[in-house]
């Protein structure tokens, strides 16, 4: 039974690093970067490690509606996906980090260098066999 408010990193192509508590996330498949505010970094760190949204809301550091909107953005960006696992407890240091946060929940997308998907004009090919086109023995 899926826990309705537990999430996990959406795929192995989503990688992240933390700098003095600030998270930077890269989607390897698209080349898009995501920079988080201090409160956003705390929420990302919690959700990506399996802490439930309900546990975050219970801290009182973040309004529920604001948290729901933020999670919806993370889902829309393909950074998080719903998980079927039981929630992990919220670490004490994250509670402190969220309480001390000064910036509103936000995530910025940096996609000016992201990949373009190149569509090959394959329609011009009569036999899109690829290479090498192995001949079948008669």
């Amino acid at each position: 039974m899926r826990q309705p408010d537990v999430y996990a990193v959406a795929s192995k192509d989503i990688v992240f690093e933390s700098f003095d508590g600030d998270a930077v996330v890269l989607d390897l498949s698209t080349g898009k970067y995501f920079g988080f505010s201090d409160s956003g970094s705390g929420v990302w760190q919690a959700l990506s490690s399996g802490v439930s949204a309900a546990a975050l809301a219970e801290t009182g550091a973040i309004a529920s509606a604001e948290l729901a909107t933020f999670i919806a953005r993370l889902l829309e960006f393909g950074l998080l996906a719903p998980a079927d696992t039981a929630p992990n407890p919220l670490p004490g240091d994250l509670i402190s980090q969220l309480a001390a946060a000064r910036e509103p929940l936000s995530v910025d997308v940096h996609d000016d260098l992201a990949d373009l998907i190149v569509v090959d004009p394959i329609h011009e090919v009569d036999e899109p066999l690829g290479w090498p086109a192995v001949k079948q023995a008669n």
């Binding site: 390897l28 498949s29 990949d115 998907i117 190149v118 569509v119 090959d120 090919v125 899109p128 690829g130």
Partner: peptide, 13 residues
Amino acid sequence: PAQWGDAHYTEHG
């Protein structure tokens, strides 16, 4: 040189 034969090409793929 060969050409690319799939419908889509992504650098990462």
